[in-house]
Amino acid sequence: MTVRPLSPHLQIYRWQLTSVLSILHRLTGIALCFALIGLTGWLFSLSQGPVFYKKYMDILNSWPLQVISGFVIICLNFHFFNGIRHLLWDIGYGLDIEKVYVSGKAVLTLTFLNSLLMFWWY
């Protein structure tokens, strides 16, 4: 077993938009892992018939889970738009520092607007 160097601990970083968005990308990814468990549960409840499905939906419609669902929508939007930003970086687009800040602000704006749209639509 090799001893690998670990990433520096988060507290040594000076807070700036670039690092905050990078940390948020990972945190929202972790949050979405839990949402995937909920989605699988939704499919399973559907497969178990209307009574089981109603019980599952009653739990999902409780106010704590409605708040969590709202949070998941924000996480999904952020992770989606910031993921596109990462994919663009991977093909070499927008890597200079000015564009990194512009794209970061664009991600936050799109997250805000699309989350509002999804809340309104739902």
């Binding site: 995937l36 699988t40 499919l43 399973f44 497969s47």
Partner: peptide
Amino acid sequence: LMVLSLFSLTTI
């Protein structure tokens, strides 16, 4: 979760 999803979708 993959198995459970596929099982659920097949059942549906």
